[in-house]
């Protein structure tokens, strides 16, 4: 009796631990991207429905948005420097750059929350009109991502402090870097379609 011929690999072979993490995390980010696309579509469809309430030109302050954009952009490059330092095995430099990144991230959140509080105090909360519901849903979801990214950043700093720049921590730092840069890409869409285009 001859063994049936197989065209697939039958010998066991190893996948190094974590070799598929980066791709898996990228696929998660793509699914997150689809979620943001739905929120952008909702804003695009409902953005003009003001219900006789205030519109973008009455509410938005482009100077504030520009400062916020600068915060996120600066945090992107400082995170890049943190990752480069981590790959060179410089733990102290990694932690310092992560701390700087956290500072910019928290500054971004602070400015955004100030803007939200200002809008709600003016009576332009999410319940005012479909435009404002879509605005708070989209920009709020992005802000929530930055908030959770900041929490993740703190936990990674603690892990790097305790365990050093081991392979697992490098992998985690790489995942957070993709998450952080991805949020900056989403913000490009936000400041373009939510703010700039509606202020023309």
């Amino acid at each position: 009796m001859t063994a049936p011929s197989t065209f697939w690999q039958t010998e066991p072979h190893d996948h190094p631990e974590g070799s598929s993490t980066a791709l898996g995390f990228w696929v998660y980010l793509m699914s997150d991207c689809l979620m943001f696309a739905v929120l952008f579509a909702a804003y695009g469809v409902l953005g003009g429905n003001l219900a006789a309430g205030p519109g973008p030109k009455d509410l938005f302050d482009l100077n504030l948005v520009a400062v916020n954009t600068a915060m996120l952009l600066l945090s992107s490059i400082t995170y890049g420097f943190a990752l480069l330092a981590a790959y060179q095995g410089r733990q102290r430099a990694t932690l310092v750059w992560l701390l700087v990144t956290l500072g910019f991230g928290l500054a971004f959140l602070g400015i955004e929350l100030t803007e939200f509080a200002h809008l709600i105090a003016e009576g332009a909360g999410p319940q005012r009109s479909a435009f404002l519901s879509a605005f708070f849903a989209l920009v709020g979801t992005h802000g929530l991502h930055v908030a959770f990214g900041s929490i993740w950043l703190v936990t990674l700093m603690v892990q790097v402090l305790q365990k050093g720049l081991i392979a697992a921590n490098l992998r985690r730092l790489l995942c957070l870097s993709m998450f952080w840069h991805f949020l900056d890409v989403v913000w490009i869409g936000v400041f373009t379609f939510v703010y700039l285009v509606r202020m023309i």
């Binding site: 482009l62 490059i77 480069l84």
Partner: peptide, 26 residues
């Protein structure tokens, strides 16, 4: 993983590509 130079290049391009539309609208 890129280099410091590639991050700096990306950052400089981003600053220009952000400043121009903001300036245009403002």
């Amino acid at each position: 993983h890129g280099t410091h130079a590639s991050y700096a290049t990306g950052f400089a391009l981003s600053v220009v590509l952000t400043a121009l539309p903001f300036g245009l609208v403002m």
